[in-house]
Design a binder for these strands. Structure first.
Length: 215
DNA sequence: CAAGTCAAAGCGTACT
DNA sequence: AGTACGCTTTGACTTG
């Protein structure tokens, strides 16, 4: 019963395969801090169970007064209940005033400092996750814009080719006529009377709605 | 307080 | 089944 004390999110077993789809919080270490754990799984599990039993019973997770006497160097995991309550509190407000901190700490049987640190970490990791999401979005934007750029260049090439082969005015569908962004008009420079018929609205390209929606 | 970092804890998997 | 290992999560600390 003590196994899932910490994971609200199901982890991906094979992180290498799905990097682009789901932004994950990867705070991997530089060194090999824990790699070849020298402790056996059995003892690790025992520790885990003891720890969670203690805290379920209401034993504090005050890291300093660890019963192992390891001077608080042993890391304590919060119980499901504690994390749940912290999450609830975080949903209500992502920062705490001193009074709220005290109350939460009391309710959770933690030290105020632990609550404070938990909120700091939670804010940081929420932000990191959001950054990853934004990054993915921008990547998709960039890709779509690159494709659109490519397409438009191709179109320009084709129009140029057409102009060379038949330099007379062509009857090109209006939607595909490229309007010069600087002068905002088409070819007919002699005509002064029809100039206003080409007044152009600003061109905005949204890669996720449709392609070129000019005018 | 945010950002960066460390390191313990936990999980999945390949290997014996 | 037991173990080693790689990787992620997360509590705690340091720095600016």
């Amino acid at each position: 019963m003590a196994e899932n004390t910490m994971n609200p999110i199901k982890k991906q077993p094979n992180p290498s395969s799905d990097h682009c789809l789901e932004p994950s919080l990867t705070l991997a270490l530089s060194g090999d801090s824990c790699g070849g754990s020298s402790f056996s799984i059995a003892s690790a599990k025992r520790e885990r169970e003891v720890a969670s039993e203690e805290s379920e019973k209401g034993g504090e997770n005050t890291s300093e007064e660890d019963e192992d006497g390891v001077n608080g160097k042993k890391k304590l995991r919060l119980t499901k209940a504690q994390s749940g309550l912290l999450e609830e509190a975080f949903k209500l407000h992502t920062t705490l005033n001193p009074k709220q901190k005290q109350e939460l700490a009391r309710d959770l049987k933690l030290r105020p400092r632990q609550v404070e640190v938990w909120f700091q970490n939670r804010r940081a990791r929420t932000k990191l996750k959001q950054t990853e999401v934004d990054c993915e979005y921008l990547k998709r934007c960039c890709k779509a814009l690159t494709e659109e750029n490519q397409r438009l260049r191709q179109e320009v090439q084709e129009l140029k080719a057409q102009k060379v082969s038949s330099p007379v005015y062509m009857h090109v569908p209006a939607a595909t006529v490229a309007v010069c962004p600087s002068c905002e008009q088409l070819g007919d420079t002699k005509s002064t009377t029809t100039k206003n018929s080409f007044t152009k609205k600003p061109y905005f390209f949204n890669p996720f709605t449709s392609s070129s929606a000019a005018c």
